[in-house]
Computed example of a mutant assay.
Amino acid sequence: MRKIHVIGIGAGDPDQLTLQAVRALRDTDVFFVLDKGEVTADLVRLRRDILRTHLPAGGYRVVQARDPERDRAATGAAYSPAVGQWRGARAGVYERLIAEELGDDATGAFLVWGDPALYDSTLGILQEVLARGSVAFTYDVVPGISSVSALAARHRTGLNRIARPVQITTGRRLAEGFPEGVDDVVVMLDAHRTFRRYADQDIDIYWGAYLGTPDELLASGPIAETAPRIERLRAEARERKGWIMDTYLLRRRPKG
């Protein structure tokens, strides 16, 4: 029976891997990597750097495949169908890779940024591949350090305050309004700088981009003062690299 490890590899720093993750790496024969093209070639390089850091040379193979294109312009009612089509296309790529590149008794692995349980599609897609019934395998999951954990650590702050909840959401959801009854909100997948909508409120922002990599950027402070700086840093970085991954925490200040 083929076996798959789904390994959380942290936000980019090879030192963020857990000992469990390193053991899973050393148990793997074939690593599957999806290539998003030249613009995000850094992401493939970072994965290879992690392998070189933790594994002896020559004991494994890396198989790359092109990631299917996704309609990122879809909004409203069209958003969920667009994501569903992309996930179906990606499931087809996974299915082919496992069937063609992994022997019947071999072990493969997908290296997942951050933690596989937090805003990542790998687990759902593997379940879809199994449901199709054309290729059989077992899989396990190794948790990783998410960008959320890395963000809090780099800013030396907690995610929640005493007896208060914290909510993790997306920029798309934040655009609909600040969550009810929550004063600490972590925002991921925000391509539209939604934090700007709250620049007139008593909120502090803790922002980070390329967390755990040599290109890491950090900014924090009252959102009215810090938002312009974040926008400038973000624009410069995107112009320089062609892509950006950022995460931030919004924290309402206590009243009175």
Rank of each mutant, 00 (worst) to 15 (best):
A24F: 10
P56K: 11
R193M: 13
D115N: 03
A131H: 09
R87E: 13
W207Q: 03
A227G: 09
H54Y: 13
A78V: 02
S146P: 07
E225N: 13
A73R: 13
G8A: 09
G103S: 08
D190G: 11
R196A: 15
T213F: 12
P214I: 14
A11M: 09
G144K: 04
E216R: 03
W86E: 02
D215Y: 14
A11I: 06
V187I: 11
G242P: 02
R26T: 01
I244E: 09
K241C: 01
R47A: 02
A57E: 15
I203V: 14
G208Y: 01
M188Q: 14
R154H: 07
R252N: 10
I9T: 13
G88H: 14
T170W: 10
R154C: 08
G58C: 07
I203A: 03
F178V: 04
P214V: 14
T213K: 10
Y248R: 03
I50T: 11
L17M: 12
I9M: 07
F178K: 00
V6S: 01
G181K: 13
G58P: 05
Y94W: 15
L46Q: 13
V22T: 04
G58M: 09
R252L: 12
A89Q: 14
R240L: 11
R61I: 00
V142R: 07
E231R: 05
D105F: 06
D184I: 07
W113M: 03
D13R: 08
P81V: 07
E225L: 13
I244L: 15
G133P: 04
A11P: 15
Q167C: 11
A219Q: 09
D184L: 03
L97Y: 05
A78M: 03
S220L: 00
G208R: 01
D115M: 04
L126Y: 06
R45F: 06
A73V: 05
A24C: 10
P254C: 05
E239S: 10
V30C: 14
A89G: 11
M245T: 09
Y139S: 08
A74P: 09
L126P: 03
G181S: 12
V182L: 09
Y139M: 09
L118G: 11
T28D: 07
L189E: 07
D202I: 00
S121P: 04
A131P: 07
I162K: 05
P179T: 04
A153N: 00
A136H: 13
L218F: 02
V135A: 13
A82C: 07
V63C: 05
R172G: 02
A199I: 08
V30F: 08
E239I: 00
L97P: 02
E239F: 00
